[in-house]
C-alpha cells in the first residue's frame, strides 16, 4: 500500500512513453508528453502528503495544525504552469512542421537535407 503512489507515477510515465513511441501525430505526441508530466505531479504530491494533516493554508485551522509539505505543492504549481507554456511552444512548432513539410506524422518526416 505504501508503494502504490510511486507505482501509479511510474505507470503514468510508462503509458505516456508508450504513446510517444507509437505516436503517428505530433499533437497526439504532445498530449502523451503531458501524461508523462502528470506522473511528476503524482510523485511530488505523494512525497509531500502527510496522513491526517490539513492543507498548508492556515486560514480555517490555526498555525501549528499538522499540514502537508508546502514546498512540494509549490513545485507542482511551478510544474503545471511551465508545462502549459512548453506545451504551447511545442504546438507552435508542430504547426510549423505541418506548414513546411505538409505532415505531422513523425514517421513520415525524414531528416532535413542541405538544399544543394
Amino acid at each position: 500500500m505504501n508503494v502504490l503512489p510511486w507505482i501509479v507515477a511510474a505507470w503514468l510515465f510508462g503509458i505516456g512513453l508508450y504513446g510517444i513511441v507509437t505516436s503517428r501525430n505530433y499533437v497526439h505526441l504532445i498530449g502523451c508528453l503531458s501524461v508523462c508530466q502528470s506522473a511528476t505531479y503524482v510523485l511530488l504530491l505523494g512525497i509531500g502528503f502527510v496522513w491526517g494533516s490539513k492543507p498548508p493554508v492556515f486560514y480555517d485551522h490555526p498555525p501549528g495544525t499538522p499540514a502537508v509539505d508546502p514546498i512540494l505543492h509549490a513545485l507542482v504549481l511551478t510544474d503545471i504552469v511551465v508545462g502549459a507554456a512548453v506545451t504551447a511552444l511545442l504546438l507552435a512548432i508542430a504547426l510549423q512542421v505541418q506548414k513546411r513539410r505538409g505532415t505531422i506524422d513523425p514517421r513520415r518526416l525524414r531528416p532535413m537535407r542541405d538544399p544543394e
Binding site: 500500500m1 503512489p5 492556515f58 509539505d69 508546502p70
Partner: peptide
C-alpha cells in the same frame, strides 16, 4: 520514504515558522 509521513524538515519548518514570520496564511 514511506507514503504519508513528513519527509522534509524544511517544509514542516516553513509550516511552523512562516505564519508568524510573514503573517501570511497560504504557505504555498
Amino acid at each position: 520514504p514511506a507514503f504519508g509521513f513528513p519527509t522534509s524538515a524544511y517544509g514542516q519548518t516553513i509550516n511552523a515558522l512562516v505564519p508568524h514570520m510573514r503573517r501570511v496564511s497560504n504557505m504555498v
